[in-house]
């Protein structure tokens, strides 16, 4: 567990550094998903950075594609590509695009960025594994604001209807979106009741608690005939004091000074 905590802290430092270098991007929703992404990539998923296209690997779809920095930090840390690439994020000609590009970045299983589409993609993958009776699992990470997209609910109906129990969806429930709080912009609650009504197995956890994340995954793997959604309560901008719980840090890069402060808090160097 300490190991995972160390890794998630490294991801946080990389996120802050790469966004500072890129001078644009989305820190808030990247930082809130660090523990979830860390657990999946470093504790759970059957993947191989030396063989990114391994046929029987588990899949990960970052439906909230703007949180690309946390995915890139995890992929680099895992060894899919050199860490130097992180510092070229969003720059012309770089491998790391502003939002995930599966054709250009090893380890990215689906191109995303336009919100609302990732659960459908994940369904397609999970369906394929069911058709072929394969054991691979599919993990998809959605934002809570993203749930305002109607297509998510088309897909949610599909996962349950087709009994995709090889699918686990995480909702990074930090409560904030660009224009403010979900509950003010467009209320998404009650999330648990919505997903239950759609036929899903629902688990609510603290999205920064490794033990709870691991237990939720364990339970989702044991659940038969139903997809599982893990509603993970998180803090947007988690780990950087001045970003925490601030909608304003959804899509803004930290300045040099702010970066220094953030890295100091995270125990790293500039």
């Amino acid at each position: 567990m300490d190991e995972l905590k160390k890794i998630s802290n490294t991801l946080r430092k990389d996120i802050v550094k790469m966004l500072n270098e890129a001078s644009s991007g989305h820190p808030g929703g990247s930082l809130s998903a660090c523990e979830i992404v860390t657990t999946l990539f470093f504790d759970e998923m059957n993947i191989d950075p030396k063989n990114p296209n391994m046929e029987n690997r588990d899949r990960f779809v970052l439906s909230k594609g703007h949180a690309a920095p946390v995915l890139y930090a995890a992929l680099a840390e895992k060894g899919y590509f050199q860490k130097e690439e992180l510092m070229k994020l969003r720059k012309t000609g770089a491998m790391l695009q502003g939002h995930p590009d599966m054709k250009g970045t090893p380890g990215v299983d689906m191109s995303t960025g336009s919100l609302g589409q990732g659960l459908s993609s994940a369904n397609g993958m999970a369906l394929s594994f069911k058709l072929d009776k394969k054991d691979s699992r599919v993990y998809v990470l959605l934002g809570d604001g993203e749930l305002q997209e109607g297509m998510v609910w088309e897909a949610a109906m599909f996962s349950a209807h087709n009994k995709l129990d090889n699918l686990t969806a995480f909702i990074d429930h930090n409560g904030l979106q660009i224009d403010g709080e979900n509950k003010e912009v467009m209320n998404v609650e009650p999330l648990n009741k919505k997903f239950e009504a759609f036929g899903w197995n629902v688990i609510k956890i603290d999205g920064h608690d490794f033990k709870e994340i691991k237990n939720a995954i364990k339970e989702s793997k044991k659940t038969k005939d139903k997809p599982t959604v893990v509603i993970a309560k998180t803090v947007k901008g988690k780990g950087v004091s001045y970003m925490e719980d601030k909608a304003g840090w959804h899509g803004k890069a930290p300045s040099d000074e702010e970066t220094e402060k953030a890295l100091k808090e995270l125990g790293g160097e500039l």
């Binding site: 046929e55 899949r59 779809v61 599966m102 299983d109 689906m110 589409q117 659960l119 459908s120 993609s121 994940a122 369904n123 397609g124 993958m125 999970a126 369906l127 394929s128 594994f129 058709l131 072929d132 297509m151 897909a155 599909f158």
Partner: peptide, 11 residues
């Protein structure tokens, strides 16, 4: 969207 995801597995 579902067709897109399914195609990534070789179908």
């Amino acid at each position: 969207g579902t067709a897109a995801g399914l195609s990534t597995t070789g179908k």
